[in-house]
Design a protein around this nucleic acid. Structure first.
Length: 570
RNA sequence: GGGCCUGUAGCUCAAUCGGUUAGAGCAGGGCGCUCAUAACGCCUUGGUUGGGGGUUCGAGUCCCUCCGGGCCUACCA
């Protein structure tokens, strides 16, 4: 049994996340965590909210609330939704935690001591009306290149030319519309990533089994132009981790905070401390310090492709640069994007299905199954209501749900609500066991390799084997001339339902639990020994016919949702 | 502009190191079954692997080129 540390990219605080966000990190991470736990491994699965930065301040202002209060509320919203989707975090933390504040300041201090931080004086747009410095993209004006009148300070959306805010004609704040912008001189800390380029590159090069998506993005940043650039790790903001050098003041940095992308990954570690402080665990160091027991931990991170540079370069630079024995990531699983019906999901425009809306219309398992079985692993994937309806109806209702239904109902009508007794297995049953064993082995191999779509395909194929067996065995026919044989067939089929419930739990935990409850089976142990697992429900064991496990999505519903979610979210 | 990814059946996706006749699911067609959520099973139609050129005994896979889609390009996070 191994020890697995699993983290999902931490979702930003400003609002409910959409299904694309969910399938890009939290959901696949949960699948993996549930699977490894089911296989008996020791797992620590962490996630948190990413709370700092300009967008959080502006969202709070818009909501008319102090930013700390806004974040606390939104954390609760996201925590509830995570629970709704059955995301099995051991702890769902907050990057604004006390633990993260201290740890972030600690890392900055250590990095400074080791000469990996330098001060840079630069100019930045300041808006007296807004009373704040504005990131480049919060300034808009007319593009000096093409004349587009809504060009952003970092890039023109019309001609794609990269810009500097001072280049814009008639620049104004997108927050207030203020035009009295001025350049102010300000001092910031830069992490000297360039010093660590060779070390990082050697490390990335050693990860030959990582997804191409992960390594190609990392290599690009390492080798593009002049190579890996130093990165600013402080900002002129109120909301964030105050800049301190460990426990000490940092002269000249008063009133500044660390950049979110510096403190957010550190929250992975702080979250383990929060987990302990919340009384859920007793030793975070054995997961994170290689000198305190973490050397045998396998650490896997899940994220969307936009997060890859920070996880392959910035955060490792922080860890390696500290010279302290922190656990480095072993495997980075990254995802492409999920699109919505011909376009992108968009938080700002409210396009697509959001986590709260999804749970309002259907149980979590429907979404979990579709999203995971269509995870955007090799390229961007697309959500359409037609595909969702047919996939879910066919896979969950027809293949799995109906199997449980036909077996239990047949048993009830012919033998009553207890596992029937008698008969002995023959060649057909031997063949089923052999096929099933091979299919489960395939499923396990894909799960271990985190090949999610392939794992879903193998799992579904295992469900199909049950229907094939039933058709071949035809207990409704054998019952007429050899009731004992039919009893044996149905006993096996009832055990198949339990088996399916167990192996499907990482994908569809609620349905799995519901099926086991109907079968009155406490045992959720993984079927390491398949013949034994298919004897788990012995003759005479009482059960009940489960409620319809998965009802079908009707055409009327699909059409309703299709139009309801076509527009924008209010 | 530069870089990376991607294009395979009507749809969603496979295809190990370049190796036999490019495979699944869904949708379509036919047959069977009657236990079941109009469910299940079997058979089956369907592909010049985006176009063109090249390397090779052999190319979906490697090279060149053109076309389409997507992402990144470092101050959104």
């Amino acid at each position: 049994m191994a020890r697995h540390l699993i983290t999902s990219a931490i979702p930003y605080i400003n609002g409910v996340k959409h299904l694309g966000n969910l399938v890009g990190s939290q959901l696949p991470a949960d699948l993996y965590a549930r699977y490894l736990r089911a296989r008996g491994h020791e797992v620590l699965f962490l996630c948190a909210t990413d709370e700092h930065g300009t967008p959080a301040e502006l969202a709070a202002a818009k909501a008319g609330k102090p930013v700390a209060e806004y974040c606390a509320e939104m954390w609760q919203v996201q925590a509830d939704l995570a629970e709704g989707f059955r995301l099995s975090f051991d702890h769902f933390g907050r990057s604004s935690s006390e633990q993260n504040r201290k740890l972030t300041q600690h890392f900055a201090g250590v990095l400074a001591d080791r000469g990996l931080i330098r001060e840079v004086s630069e100019t930045q747009m300041y808006s007296p009306t807004d009373g704040r410095y504005l990131p480049d993209r919060y300034i808009e004006g007319t593009c000096p290149n093409c004349g587009f009148d809504s060009a952003r300070g970092d890039q023109c959306d019309n001609c794609t030319k990269q810009l500097d805010p001072v280049d814009l004609i008639n620049p104004h704040s997108t927050v207030s519309g203020a035009t009295d912008l001025e350049m102010r001189e300000t001092k910031h800390l830069y992490l000297r990533q360039s010093e660590m380029k060779d070390e990082l590159e050697a490390w990335i090069d050693s990860k030959t089994d990582w997804p191409v998506l992960t390594t190609s993005i990392a290599k690009k940043w390492l080798t593009d132009g002049d190579g890996l650039q130093d990165r600013g790790i402080t900002r002129d903001l109120d909301w964030g981790v105050p800049v301190r050098r460990g426990d000490a003041d940092w002269p000249g940095m008063e009133g500044k905070v660390f950049y979110v992308w510096f403190d957010a990954p550190i929250e992975y570690i702080a979250c383990a401390q929060e987990w302990v402080d919340a009384g859920k665990g007793d030793d975070w160091a054995r997961w994170w310090r290689t000198d305190e027991g973490a050397s045998d931990v396998r650490y896997t991170q899940f994220m969307g492709k936009d997060n890859v540079p920070f996880h392959t370069l910035s955060f490792p630079a922080t860890i390696l640069g500290s010279g302290e024995p922190w656990k480095l990531v072993d495997y980075i699983k990254s995802f492409n994007y999920l699109n919505y019906d011909g376009g992108q999901f968009s938080t700002s425009r409210g396009r697509g299905v959001f986590m709260d809306q999804a749970l309002e219309i259907l149980p979590a398992d429907y979404w979990r199954w579709w999203l995971l079985s269509h995870a955007p692993e090799s390229s961007d994937a697309e959500f359409t209501w037609e595909n969702f309806q047919t996939s879910v109806n066919k896979d969950l209702a027809d293949v799995l749900g109906n199997f449980a239904s036909r077996v239990t109902k047949f048993c009830r009508s012919k033998f009553g609500e207890a596992v029937p007794e008698g008969g002995t297995r023959g060649a057909l049953e031997e063949q089923l066991l052999s096929d099933l064993s091979a299919k489960i082995a395939e499923y396990q191999a894909h799960m271990e390799a985190i090949e999610i779509r392939k794992a879903a395909t193998a799992l579904r194929a295992a469900w199909v084997l049950g229907n094939e067996y039933l058709q071949e065995a035809a207990p409704w026919a054998t019952f007429k001339e050899d009731p004992e044989k039919a009893a044996m067939q149905i006993r096996l089929a009832l055990n198949l339902i339990r088996l399916y419930a167990v192996i499907s739990a990482p994908f569809i935990p609620d349905a799995s639990a519901q099926l086991r409850a109907a079968l009155k089976s406490e045992d959720a142990g993984w079927p390491d020994d398949l013949p034994e697992a298919l004897e788990a429900l012995p003759a005479g064991h009482a059960f009940t016919v489960p409620e319809v496990t998965f009802r079908k999505i009707t055409d009327a519903e699909r059409e309703d949702w299709q139009s309801r979610f076509a527009g924008t979210r209010s």
